[in-house]
Nucleic acid binder design. Structure first.
Lengths: 127, 127
DNA sequence: CGGTATCCTAGGAGATACTG
DNA sequence: CAGTATCTCCTAGGATACCG
């Protein structure tokens, strides 16, 4: 895990290839979670390793406490993020990716890298 | 293009690896476009080939006309979708992906496939 | 430090009606 | 067929204050 590369499918699953996917499809919900504005940034940030609340707040620049809490809860419920709380004073809580979270982040990284590399051309209309 | 697979980076660009990315970063805007609820579905649908307005309306089940128009305009402005309008009656307009759009859809497909394959486990909390 | 609770509002998004 | 135009509703999300 880490430096190696991945081989990925270039087509959709067969059952999706005709109608994209239906309105009530559970994958829509999941897709909404993992492509949410802050969800992507949190997952990406955690792909670099375990981090604390305040780390995440700083790294996902611009996020509010409310959105950080909400996003982390959703990702935790989805089994993508692991929360480890230590009963010390001052409190210490560490967040990290689960195995499933790592799997996902590996798919997100190329996407974010692409957005990063193409952002200027896209927004400035360069060819 | 089509059936072959892709090799993708497993890490972020070096300049992103410390702080995710800054609040005003253009890539945030691009990321918002391409990970938008309907944007993903439209790009995915068009990855199957050229389609008309009414095709897209049907395939991205649940989308309103307003959102379809808005999403298509954004994607067109971003140089991801090509709009070909024929001055006939009744009007005929075909939408397709640009090269850049195809590039992007190739990154989106694994993500959507993953969401599809993991949706039930994620939402029902199965291990 | 690591969060809740509360209030508030811009704009995301649906429904309906109309048009070249 | 392929869209606009309006109206309205609603919630994602920011600001602020407070708590164990």
């Amino acid at each position: 895990m880490g430096m190696e590369t991945q081989v990925l499918p270039a087509r959709l699953p067969a059952d999706l290839s005709d109608g994209v996917f239906p309105a009530g499809c559970p994958s829509r919900t999941v897709l909404d979670h993992i492509t949410s504005k802050w969800g992507v940034l949190i997952l990406l940030s955690l792909s670099e390793g375990e981090q604390r609340w305040s780390d995440l707040r700083r790294r996902a620049e611009g996020i509010s406490e409310k959105m950080l809490a909400q996003t982390l809860k959703t990702l935790e419920r989805d089994g993508l993020v692991l929360r480890k709380s230590q009963p010390v004073i001052p409190p210490r809580v560490d967040y990290s990716l689960t195995d499933r979270g790592y799997e996902l982040s590996a798919l997100l990284i190329p996407l974010v890298a692409w957005a990063y590399n193409n952002a200027d051309e896209i927004l400035n209309g360069e060819r």
